[in-house]
């Protein structure tokens, strides 16, 4: 990714490296400051870089709080707000860009929720129903989730009752690790080991099932031959 517009020699002094390739360097205030400066100067590549750094995190945050519906539009709207805020000087401390983006995202979430509430209130009195967002998963996502649940069911049926109880307390009843360890008389290390084994088994079975999917067109298809 080019940092600068072609032909632009760039600012003197230190050249920033690609923040999206090395997120651990994001704490370097000079890098955030330079990115903000480039955005304000109209450098298009800096906008792409901003999206590359924050795009996935914003998408995750919005999905977690608002669901998957119309997610692309919401991510886009949030980015527009962030860019406008940067360009009009609302970001007073460029080195706090991460915190600033987080604040904008939280406000966007609140705004989307408020808008959804208002739309439902407006539609409540309508005799002919207005649009009702479909919160159901897509058919593909349902199949994937069903398969994952089946794999997990097999795993849970295959482990001891005690191990199943430990994991159930953690994932279903959301008890803390400390409480589980105290009541079930195990160390945190033992708990972590059990958890990681279950996750590894889940991943292994999932990969096995995916690799065993029907390969249409890749292999010679056989038909039933003569019966005896």
């Amino acid at each position: 990714m080019e940092d600068l517009i072609p032909g632009d020699p760039g600012p003197p002094g230190r050249r920033p490296h690609d923040l999206s390739a090395n997120p651990s360097a994001a704490e370097d205030n000079l890098q955030w400051g330079h990115l903000v400066e480039r955005i304000r100067s109209g450098d298009q590549s800096s906008v792409e870089e901003l999206y590359g750094i924050f795009g996935r995190g914003i998408r995750y945050y919005l999905c977690r709080h608002l669901g998957a519906q119309e997610l692309d539009d919401k991510v886009h709207d949030t980015f527009v707000v962030v860019l406008q805020a940067i360009r009009n000087g609302s970001l007073r401390e460029p080195d706090r860009l991460m915190g600033f983006v987080r604040t904008v995202v939280r406000r966007q979430v609140a705004s989307f929720i408020e808008e959804a509430v208002q739309v439902r209130k407006d539609q409540a009195g309508m005799e002919i129903g207005g649009s009702i967002p479909d919160a159901a998963l897509s058919p593909e996502r349902r199949v994937i989730n069903d398969e994952r649940s089946r794999i997990m069911y097999e795993i849970l049926k295959g482990i001891s009752k005690r191990d199943r109880e430990i994991l159930t307390r953690f994932y279903l009843y959301e008890q803390s690790v400390e409480q589980i360890c105290a009541e079930m008389r195990l160390s945190e290390t033992q708990f972590r080991l059990l958890k990681s084994r279950a996750k590894a088994r889940f991943g292994e079975l999932g990969r096995k099932r995916v690799s065993r999917g029907p390969r249409i067109g890749n292999f010679l298809r056989k038909a039933t031959g003569a019966g005896h």
């Binding site: 997120p23 994001a26 750094i53 995190g57 945050y61 991460m98 995202v105 994932y171 279903l172 889940f202």
Partner: peptide
């Protein structure tokens, strides 16, 4: 803030969420 910029941690979070969701259904 960290999850906004760290794809590795985000992937871990998403993996854990998927695992937890499947676990709850099965449990």
């Amino acid at each position: 803030e960290h999850l906004l910029v760290c794809p590795a941690c985000l992937e871990r979070v998403e993996e854990e969420e998927q695992f937890a969701a499947s676990f709850r259904t099965a449990a």
